[in-house]
């Protein structure tokens, strides 16, 4: 075990972890409030990445404006999807899986058709590297971590400190009771989908320049996001943060010191975790009951 690698491994873990947090937090909000496993969440992330390509790379829109644009565009699309596709079948498990999966296929296929299936490269908005503690940090990744922290902070404020957040938590806890208090369940589901997809869009813009942008990006993203929310606790926001960071560090340490076996061990661990703690590590904190 090479100790001198540790700062670098921690940096990579933090970076991967924060990107998982960004993707998974949107998924967990939607799952917590609408109780639909949004298999199309990865595709919203992919659309965000294409926003980065078209707005930032092609049209030359400033990076921070691109993030806001992507949150808006993908969020509004998500709200539309919720209204038209998810609302009628929200109460039923089986059709919601089918519709979400169908939506994922449809969006991935449409993106491949419209944007072309080839991989696209987004140039880094913040080139350069930083050397400290014997590790190399790329400035871009540090900025991503910072922006991710800002976004998660904003989300934390929204959910715990505002009236809207209280309404969202209410719907997540008990729909009937919430609607008795005059909270619109339909409205909250719509808003949660907007927030969730907006987060996916932001994640896409942030991670697009780091990874490669292509239309079939979503499948891997949703898979990782699912693992994160299982680890952390389904529907729990701190769970998504914990799960995301944990997954980032496990992958970073595991791939450096153990190799591919990490993945097998990870899934075996999650298997045991679900058996004995179906709520995940942080189940039932904040948002939902599973």
């Amino acid at each position: 075990m090479d100790v001198s690698l540790i700062p670098q491994v921690i940096a990579n873990g933090l970076m991967m972890g924060m990107s998982y947090v960004l993707i998974a937090s949107g998924l967990t909000i939607v799952l917590g409030i609408t109780r639909i496993i949004n298999f199309a969440h990865g595709e919203f992330y992919m659309l965000g990445a294409f926003c980065a390509y078209y707005f930032f790379q092609m049209a030359g829109v400033p990076y921070l404006v691109t993030i806001l644009l992507a949150i808006l565009a993908v969020g509004v699309l998500g709200m539309g999807v919720e209204r038209v596709l998810f609302r009628p079948i929200r109460e039923f498990f089986l059709p919601s899986v089918v519709v979400a999966l169908g939506l994922a296929f449809f969006l991935a296929g449409t993106a491949a058709w419209l944007f072309g299936p080839e991989e696209k490269v987004v140039t880094s908005p913040f080139p350069g590297v930083l050397n400290a503690l014997g590790a190399t940090f790329s400035v871009e990744r540090l900025v991503v971590i910072l922006i991710a922290i800002v976004i998660m902070g904003g989300l934390w404020y929204l959910i715990t400190r505002t009236k809207l957040g209280r309404a969202l938590r209410g719907v997540a806890q008990d729909r009937e009771a919430a609607s008795l208090q005059g909270i619109s369940v339909n409205g909250m589901c719509n808003i949660s989908m907007g927030i969730g997809c907006g987060l996916a869009g932001a994640a896409g813009v942030l991670l697009g320049p780091i990874f490669i942008v292509h239309p079939y990006l979503g499948a891997l993203a949703i898979f990782k996001a699912l693992i994160v929310i299982i680890l952390g606790g389904i529907g729990s926001m701190p769970g998504a943060v914990l799960g995301g960071l944990l997954l980032g560090f496990i992958e970073s340490f595991g791939l450096t010191y153990l190799g591919g076996v990490t993945d097998v061990l990870l899934f075996a661990f999650i298997f045991v975790l679900i058996l004995f703690r179906p709520g995940g590590l942080m189940g039932r904190v904040w948002v939902i009951r599973h």
Binding site: V99, G102, L103, A104, F105, F106
Partner: peptide, 20 residues
């Protein structure tokens, strides 16, 4: 391949909504 993705997606959604 691209088009069959769109096709599958559309079929899944349409069947659930119109021939549940």
């Amino acid at each position: 391949e691209t088009f069959s993705f769109i096709l599958y997606g559309a079929v899944f959604i349409l069947v659930i909504f119109f021939i549940p």
